[in-house]
Design a binder for these strands. Structure first.
Lengths: 334, 334
DNA sequence: TTTAGCAGTGTCAATAGAAAACTGCTAATT
DNA sequence: AATTAGCAGTTTTCTATTGACACTGCTAAA
C-alpha cells in the first residue's frame, strides 16, 4: 500500500512524463511538494521496488513502468472534462439529421481523432447476431450475376459471379428461392451449419449444377461472418507524431497490425464501462495503449477505441469517451 | 545524342544505383568497360551536363537524376522475364475458378506485391460509365430502411436510413418505384441532373414527405459516382524497407497520400501500354515511382499499379506487368 | 524522518584528427 | 584527338576525447 506522498509523487511523474516524454528528476518534483529532492529520491527507490517506476540508466530520472501507468489509471487519475468547444464539435455532428448513422459515426471519429491527436477507430457491431433477411440475385450482362446477402440489421455483402454457360438463370433463381425459403431468419453464425445439412441436400435434388451456386452463397455467408464487423480508422498515422515512434521498424510493425486488425478481439470483450489496455495489454505494441468503450445508438451497437502511445493523455481520453457514452450512445441495456 | 559508351555508362550507373542505393564511382565502372577511371570521369561530366546524372557533394560518386531514370526506361532498359516460379504463382491464382473476379484480383496483387516487394494497388473500373440497374429498399426493424443502388456492372452502394415516423413505408415504396421507372438505364454520371430536373418534380407531386427520401438517393448516387472506383492495396508498407525512407515525415506524407488516393488521376489516363511515372511525375512523392497498366478480364476493366522507390527495379516490374497484360487481361479492345 | 552535500555514473554536444572514397585537372602517352 | 596516370583537393565518416550537465545513491548530520 502506498502512502499519500508516494501516490502524489507517482501521479506527478506519470503526468509529467506524459507531457514531456522525458524522464522526471527528483529536483523537478520537490518544487511541487515541499520537501527536499533527497526525500523524493528515497521515495522513488521505494516506488521502483514496487515496479511502478523505471530508470533508463543508472543516473537518469524516473519514468512510469507499465504497472505504474496501470496504477495511475486505476487509482490516481481523474477523468478530465472536455472543453466546451470540443463538445460543440461533437454535438453538431450528432445532431445533423441529414447524415445516416454510418456517416455520423465516421465523421465523429474523425472529430475524436482531431481533438485527441490519437488514432481512433470504430468497430461496427459484430454481424454474428444478425439474422438473414434475404438473398437476392440480379442478372447482369452476359453470364454475370450479382448475388447479394442482406441481414436484418442492414449488412450487405455482394459478389459478382461469372457463371459457366451451362447454368441457366432459372437454376439460379431456383437456388435463391430455396435459400430464401429455408434459411431466412436464421442467425448468421448458425447459417453455415444449416446450409450444409438442411439446404444442400434439397438444392442438390432440385438444381442441376448446384455445386457452384451453393459454394458461392456459402462463401458469401462465411465472409460476412468472418469480417465480423467493419472497422473504420481516423488519423491512422497520428502516432507518428510522437517522439517514441522514430524507429521505422516499429512503425512498420504497428501499421501492419492496424491492417490485420488482429487486436480487435480485445474490443469485443464484454464490458460496459470505459476500458483501458496499456502497453503489452493492447496486443498491438508494447508502446501503445488502447482506450475503448461500447456505444449504442438506437439499437446500433459498436465500439469506439482510441489508440495512442503508452504515454497517452488518459485523463483527457477517458473524459472524452465518458462524454460520448453518456450523451450519445450510453443506454446500458444489457 | 549519346554515344554508345555514354549509354553503357548511364545504364550501368542506373542499375548499380538501383541495386545498392549508393552513388556509383568511376572506379567501379571501369572494371566493367575496359577503359580507365579517368575516361569514365570525363564521360560522367558530359552526362551530368545533360542532366542525366547528379552528385550529392563535390567528391561523391554519381547517381541518376530523374531525367536519367527516364532516359533509362525509355531507351536503355530491357524488360526482364519473370522467373518460372513467379509465373506459376500467378497462374494458379488466375486459374482458380472457385474465386470470384474481385477475389482473384485482390489475391493476385498480393502475389505481385510479394514478388516485387513493392506496394501494389488495383483500381477497379470507374463507375462513370455504369448505368443504373435498379434501386431497392428493404424495410428493417422499426423505422429503419435499407436502401440500395445497383448498377449494370454490379456496383452496389447501400445506406441504412432512420426515417422519421411521419413517413410511411408506402411512401418509400412509391419513391423507389418512381425512380426505377424514370431513371433505370441512365448512365450514372448523368443521373444527378436527370434526378434534379425530371424526377424531383414528379416525386414532389406524388409523395408527401419527399425531401428526405429524395435526398437520400441523391446522396447515394453522388457517392457511388465520387468514389469512382474501389482501390485495393497490397503491401502498403513495403516502401518502408527502402533505405531512402528513414525520415518519419516523408513516411507520414506518403501514407496519407495513399489514403487520400488523390494520385489516382494518373491511373485513369488513357493508354494501352505499360506506363511509368517517375518521381515528381507520380504525383505522390518525388521519391516514388509508379508503373501501371490496364487490364481487361472478360470485360472487367481496371488498372494495376506498382508503387516503389524512384530507385525501383523497372525492368523486373515492367516485365511482370507485361506478362500480366499479355497472359491475363490483355485484350486491347479500344 | 528529513535533509545537505558529495562522489559516482551516464548522456550529450562539440572538437579534432585520421582514414576513406571520389572527383577534376594536368600533363604525359598512345 | 582520345586516353590515361597521377595527384591535389573535397567531403564524408569514423573514432576518440573532452567538458558540461543532469541525475542518483549514499552518508552523515540535523
Amino acid at each position: 500500500m502506498l502512502t499519500e506522498r508516494q501516490k502524489e509523487i507517482l501521479k506527478y511523474i506519470v503526468e509529467e512524463y506524459i507531457k514531456t516524454a522525458k524522464p522526471v528528476s527528483s529536483n523537478k518534483i520537490c518544487n511541487k511538494l515541499n520537501c527536499s529532492s533527497a526525500t523524493i529520491r528515497n521515495e522513488m527507490v521505494i516506488l521502483e521496488d514496487y515496479h511502478l517506476l523505471e530508470k533508463n540508466h543508472f543516473a537518469s530520472g524516473r519514468q512510469p513502468s507499465e504497472e505504474g501507468y496501470r496504477y495511475y489509471v486505476n487509482n490516481l487519475m481523474q477523468p478530465k472534462n472536455m472543453s466546451g468547444e470540443d463538445m460543440l464539435k461533437l454535438q453538431t455532428i450528432f445532431h445533423n439529421s441529414t447524415l445516416d448513422l454510418n456517416d455520423t459515426i465516421k465523421k465523429s471519429i474523425e472529430i475524436v481523432s482531431e481533438i485527441t491527436n490519437y488514432t481512433t477507430l470504430v468497430l461496427g457491431k459484430s454481424a454474428q447476431d444478425n439474422r438473414l433477411k434475404k438473398v437476392e440475385t440480379i442478372p447482369l450482362e452476359a453470364n454475370k450475376v450479382l448475388t447479394m446477402v442482406i441481414t436484418d440489421k442492414g449488412f450487405v455483402e455482394h459478389k459478382t459471379l461469372n457463371l459457366p454457360l451451362t447454368i441457366s438463370t432459372e437454376e439460379v433463381k431456383k437456388t435463391v428461392d430455396l435459400i430464401n425459403k429455408l434459411v431466412v431468419g436464421t442467425p448468421l453464425d448458425e447459417i453455415s451449419e444449416k446450409l450444409e445439412y438442411s439446404v444442400k441436400p434439397i438444392i442438390a435434388k432440385y438444381v442441376k449444377q448446384h455445386e457452384i451456386l451453393y459454394n458461392t452463397f456459402y462463401d458469401a455467408f462465411n465472409e460476412i461472418n468472418h469480417k465480423n464487423s467493419d472497422v473504420h480508422f481516423a488519423g491512422k498515422t497520428k502516432f507518428l507524431n510522437q517522439p517514441e515512434f522514430n524507429d521505422i521498424d516499429k512503425v512498420k510493425d504497428i501499421l501492419n497490425k492496424f491492417d490485420n486488425i488482429s487486436f480487435v478481439d480485445k474490443m469485443t470483450e464484454d464490458d460496459n464501462g470505459v476500458n483501458i489496455y496499456i502497453g503489452s495489454d493492447s496486443d498491438i505494441s508494447d508502446d501503445l495503449s488502447i482506450v475503448k468503450t461500447k456505444y449504442n445508438i438506437d439499437g446500433d451497437e459498436g465500439t469506439i477505441a482510441i489508440i495512442g502511445p503508452k504515454r497517452m493523455e488518459y485523463d483527457k481520453v477517458v473524459g472524452l469517451l465518458d462524454y460520448i457514452k453518456q450523451n450519445i450512445g450510453g443506454q446500458d441495456e444489457n
